[in-house]
Amino acid sequence: MNTTTFPNSPLLSVRDLSICFDTRHGPLRAVDGITFDLAPGEILGMVGESGAGKSLTGTAITGLLERPGRIDRGEILFEGKRIDTLSAEEMRRLRGRRIGAIFQDPLTSLNPLMTVGQQLVQTIRTHLSLGKEAARKRAIECLAEVGIPAPEARIDQYPHQFSGGMRQRVVIALALCAEPSLVIADEPTTALDVSIQAQILDLLKKMCRERGAAVILVTHDMGVIAETADRVAVMYSGRVVEIGPVEKVVRDPRHPYTKGLMQSIPRVGSNALRLTQIDGAMPRLTDLPSGCAFHPRCPRAFAECKRTKPAALPVEGGHVACHLYQEEPV
């Protein structure tokens, strides 16, 4: 796959990354050769159905991939240096300081036995050389920045004393307090109520813009991506089938899967009698079809699709991996 060129060198570069799970039936490839770049300060959305490999990709970048999963091919370059080969200890230092992580369920990211302040101070002092008092001051500032009212009082409370939305704000504060240059946000709003989702997304966007942090936003919700991301990578069965600027992918999707996905989203006020649907379901890892994994569900599949995996071809501002576009001029 050709690399998209950026004015300045990419912050993160994922090259031909493959993740497989060792099982007694042999290795199962959950992520299959994905390549993308992330510019500093950019928000990249990764969208796909459950099991498409989007969360695994995020996990691999944060170095939190656990056995029996492993990276079996490719490399991850962060600020020009390979990080997929780092030791657990080196990765731990990088995480938090340079790479922040936000997960779906705010309760699992926070230690229920420590006050919010203790957790913030601990993170700040691990990564920044600050004294106890200075770190606490910084923690209060962080809480204020994420919009928690009366941070001086709330800093000494435990996670369970916060509501769901406030808890996710704390998680964002925790992920951003060491000023990382990359944030991996895995379904950060899925567990929240609809009226709070927008607040959290806006906050995430604002915080990252102000700090110049790049974000990989992993979600199944195209609406979240459309409103938040600069570029979007659409994943299906472990591969990136289409990547490009959000406006482009949303308005004019190329890949038949992206097209089907966009059309199947119900919209308010459409007055449709039926929704467009993609028949079938994403294949299981244990019985992946030959060639393009989408071909059994694809309305435009032809003979070649059953035979070979389509390579990613550059199209306007992005790439699409589909045999339909093989002949198109680059």
Binding site: S195, Q197, A198, A226, V250, M262, I265
Partner: peptide
Amino acid sequence: LLMDTVPDISLGR
């Protein structure tokens, strides 16, 4: 408020 929170896909951001 609920109507406002529906993410708008067609308009982008």
